[in-house]
Design a protein around this nucleic acid. Structure first.
Lengths: 129, 129
DNA sequence: CGACATTAAATGCACTTGCATTAGATGTGT
DNA sequence: ACACATCTAATGCAAGTGCATTTAATGTCG
């Protein structure tokens, strides 16, 4: 476990994260009115293709529970998802994507892929020593 | 350029960034009173071992110019750096690390390395297809 | 059954960030 | 020399985030 390798990898992660995040924020925002977090949540729901509990989403998205709660609130206000109480455990809330949400996601997906492809086109990940 | 590879790499970057950032924030904050951005700026100055212009730092740290300006302001308030006008171009500002800043950095460096080593200990970076 | 710990999600709050703008200094062209 | 574009850094401001707390529902133990 070379210390040099660790630091190089960290710098790689920092650089790519900043680059991709910044560009995603621009492109998704300007072209589809979505932030990276909003897109990520929609993407996870579409990927599972079912309604998910907030807690399940929490495990998959890299956000705190409170931040996720607000992202879902924004998505709900934009009519891209609906929130409903869970019958079996009325503390729980499940999030269900709407048709409009699905459409918006489908529309935004190529944009996201294009950005990622551009950012990672040359992906000289630091080699393991 | 496989689309799958691109997405996998992105997820890797997202996960490692979140994990490392979160832990750095905790450890650097609790043990040394530094945020990740503050540490990063100190680290860049120590690495160059000279006073740097704000603009130079801007190229190396992944922050906007305004955010960097405020990080430097916080560091100055904590007496870890000093700011001075550049004689040759009086628009410019150079940032100079203090002895206390050097000491704090030296003290925090092992903490940062420990966190990074832990996070990237198993670093199965998605393999290039 | 009843008190208390536990869990899920929402909310108050402070903090950091980026965008847009501003203030001041420098360069340029006529 | 003067007007104007450009550049550097700082600041007003809005937005998103995490931590701590709150509210409501569930589980558990006596």
């Amino acid at each position: 476990m070379d210390e040099r390798f660790v630091v190089d990898t960290w710098h790689y992660v920092l650089a790519k994260h900043a680059q991709a995040m910044c560009q995603l924020e621009r492109e998704l925002g300007d072209r589809h009115g979505l932030g990276p977090s909003e897109f990520e949540v929609l993407d996870r729901i579409v990927h599972h293709d079912r309604k998910l509990r907030i807690q399940e989403l929490c495990d998959e998205v890299h956000l705190s529970q409170s931040a996720l709660s607000r992202v879902v609130a924004r998505l709900e206000k934009a009519a891209l998802v609906t929130r409903g109480v869970c019958d079996s455990d009325r503390r729980g809330v499940f999030v269900c994507i709407t048709d409009e949400g699905r459409a918006r996601h489908a529309e935004a997906l190529p944009t996201q892929r294009a950005v990622l492809t551009e950012v990672f086109a040359d992906a000289p990940v630091p080699a393991v020593p």
